[in-house]
Design a binder for these strands. Structure first.
Lengths: 143, 143
DNA sequence: CGGTATCCCGTGTGATACTG
DNA sequence: CAGTATCACACGGGATACCG
C-alpha cells in the first residue's frame, strides 16, 4: 500500500511536469511561466513581498529600511512591477507632504505563501548545499 | 472553530516571516536565502531542473533540445552551478566520442517539488495577473 | 516625502569559432 | 559529442541630482 502511494505521488509529479512543459511550448515571451517567473523571480521582488508580508502596510521609506540594501531606484521599479502584476496595491494620499501606502493584495499574499515555502526549503537544505559546495571545491583542487 | 483555524494559520505565516527575516539580518552574501535563491532563482536553472525532472537522465545535447532557447554556453554554466550546489550529478564516460549523463540528485528532486508548486501557482493565477496588467495599462492611459 | 531623470559601469548572455 | 575561449553588447542596477 505504501509503495502504491509513492508510485501515485510519482505519477502526479510526472503529470505536473508534463503540464508545465505543455505550457512552455509557446515560443514567445507570452509563455506564462517564463513570463511570471521572470517578473517575480528576482531577489528584490521576493524581498519586497516578504517585507510587506511582515509589516502589512508600509510607506515608501519604511519599506526601504525593511528591505535593507535596496536602492531608491530599484524599490520604485520593483514596486511598480509588483503593482502592475496585481501583487501590491498602492494608495496615494494627496496631502502635503505626500503619503503613499503599500500593501499586499490577496494575490500577493497568496504568492507570499509560495515564497515562504521556498525560503523554508532553502534554510532546511542549507547544510546539504554547503556540503555539496565544499565537495565541489575539493574536486576542482585535485585537477 | 474555523476562525480559530484561520488565525492559527496566520500566526504560522507570521512566524515563518519572522524566521526568514531573522536569517536575513546577516549583511554579507552568506545569508543563505539570498544566496540560494540567487543561484536557483534564474530561469535557466528552473527550466533545466524541470527538464531533468521530465527525462530523468539526459546527455548534454538532449538537454539542450529539451530546454529550448538556451544557448550552449548558458547550459554549461547552469549545469556547473547546479552541480556545484548538489542538485545535479554529472557522470562522464571516458569513451570516444565522449558521453556525459546528467541526472537530478535527491536534493535536486526535492527542489523540483518546490519548482512545480511555483509553476502551478503561476499557471493557476495567470488570469488574475493578466487582468491586473490590463487594468494597470488602462490607468496609465488616463494620464 | 516620494518620487523621476540621467549617467555610467559591471555583469550576464548570445554568437561565433576552436578543441580533446 | 561535449565542451572551452573570446568577443560584443544590452541591461540591471548604483550614484547623483532634480521635481511636485
Amino acid at each position: 500500500m505504501i509503495v502504491t502511494n509513492i508510485e501515485n505521488q510519482e505519477l502526479t509529479i510526472e503529470n505536473k511536469i508534463e503540464k508545465v512543459f505543455d505550457m512552455e511550448q509557446c515560443e514567445n515571451v507570452l509563455c506564462p511561466i517564463k513570463d511570471i517567473l521572470a517578473h517575480l523571480g528576482d531577489k528584490w521582488s521576493i524581498f519586497t513581498i516578504l517585507a510587506l508580508g511582515q509589516v502589512k502596510v508600509a510607506r515608501f521609506n519604511e519599506l526601504k529600511k525593511q528591505v535593507a540594501g535596496i536602492s531608491q531606484r530599484m524599490l520604485t521599479v520593483t514596486l511598480r512591477s509588483l503593482e502592475e502584476n496585481g501583487l501590491v496595491s498602492r494608495q496615494l494620499f494627496p496631502e502635503i507632504p505626500p503619503r503613499v501606502e503599500y500593501t499586499l493584495t490577496s494575490l500577493g499574499h497568496s504568492l507570499l505563501g509560495q515564497m515562504l515555502q521556498l525560503a523554508e526549503w532553502a534554510t532546511s537544505h542549507r547544510d546539504e548545499i554547503d556540503e555539496a559546495r565544499k565537495k565541489f571545491q575539493e574536486k576542482k583542487l585535485v585537477f
